[in-house]
Design a protein around this nucleic acid. Structure first.
Lengths: 229, 229
DNA sequence: AAACATTTGTCCGTATGTATA
DNA sequence: ATATACATACGGACAAATGTT
């Protein structure tokens, strides 16, 4: 008898989480625009959820920097400027560089093989011009390194910053994409540094792997050079 | 006629904020111990606040990593291990190093003077052996640099990590102190790097200024353990 | 200035789910 | 296994505060 094992969610879907996820998506993809006023009663009716979990979700989004709550006055989606890209990427680059530094110390041979596999897939996807999947593969590569570093503070902060980058791209570039061939070289250099357990090089390469895209985005938007080196 | 200007708080004290601050302090100073179970009804009665703002405060503390909420089951203060010190300091060092890097680029002469003033006070306090004030002065110094870097992501993450460090010290060292003369030299080196607008040096010095205390704390703790057993 | 309309903040009751006997 | 106690998640009503006419 076929037992329906792994009947997915042993945790019931909390109303708060549902509201949180929905609102976060709406803010990131621009459905809720920067500066837009948020009325919890409206959201409540729209989602068919009472105000309590809605308010809880809003508070979490405030901590993440997606909305601003002015007690007793109003709640708004946070504004976002083109120059903000220069504030979001550097901390992310610093944290990811640290993750690479740590990973280089403790990574195991099997994990390096895993990264190599990802990278060859990455290369193939670039060749085929599959923008979306290429990006997903890049993200997977970075997440694997973060996991290897095994530090919840790094991973928590990193993921928040990545969400802000995604929002930034949706708002100003109307898409999430933008992968460059240069990145592939850096990934290969990273793997070599891991194999050598060379933390310093791993850190430096990773930092560049994030700051280069920042400068490209900034240049595309303003025509000016961002922070060079 | 003496007008009572600046009648302090134009913002009413929200019950949620009151609960948040109180609980955070209790967790950091060890009144609420690691692993301790938290009942919102108890907290509610203890603080004379209804359960809703209590629950809101708890959720924020969860995001900050001070408590764990298991939906429908229980809420507990997060555990903390001696080895965690090796996970908390490095991201903080990385972010503060980035702040120093940025500050070195954009700092103004007056701000450098301000830092010099703080540092001479720092030196005097060390001489006098005023542990508590020395620490406060050190914190002020770092916060000023963070402000100078002018990046909300850096400052937000930094302050959370600093709270975790404070908790760690209270839990394992029964105090918050521990300042070393070595730090003074580093502060002076930092100021010099700022004056030279030498981002690279500023970053490196700042990183060491945080990693050195980490190693001292860790050594002190593992040493204690060795003697006990 | 004062009463109104809105929106937020808080309280508490109830239902749902979890652990224990 | 069932029933019981209990803690949490959610809903809806009330109170307080803002700014508007």
């Amino acid at each position: 008898m076929p037992i329906p094992q792994n009947y997915s969610t042993p945790v019931r879907m909390l109303a708060k989480d549902k509201a949180f996820n929905q609102l976060q998506h709406w803010i990131i993809d621009g459905t809720l625009k920067p500066g837009e006023k948020i009325l919890d009663t409206e959201i409540s009716k729209a989602l068919g959820i009472s105000r309590t979990p809605i308010r809880e979700a809003l508070q979490l989004l405030e901590v993440q920097g997606f909305i601003e709550m002015h007690p007793g006055k109003e709640t708004r989606v946070t504004m976002i400027k083109k120059e903000d890209v220069l504030k979001i990427y550097p901390p992310l680059a610093a944290l990811q560089a640290l993750a690479a530094e740590e990973a280089a110390r403790i990574i195991m041979p099997e994990q390096i093989e895993e990264l190599k596999t990802m990278t060859s897939r990455y290369e193939q996807l670039i060749e085929k011009g599959e923008q979306f999947r290429t990006m997903a593969c890049d993200e997977e590569f970075h997440n694997y390194i973060i996991e290897t570093a095994d530090n919840p503070y790094i991973s928590d902060f990193s993921s928040i910053l990545q969400l802000h980058i995604r929002r930034f791209k949706y708002v100003f570039l109307k898409s999430d994409g933008m992968v460059v061939r240069e990145s592939l070289k850096e990934h290969k250099a990273l793997i070599q540094a891991f194999a050598d357990h060379d933390s310093e090089t791993a850190s430096a390469v990773m930092k560049q792997n994030w700051l280069r895209p920042m400068n490209e985005v900034y240049k595309a938007l303003t025509g000016e050079e961002g922070r060079q080196k």
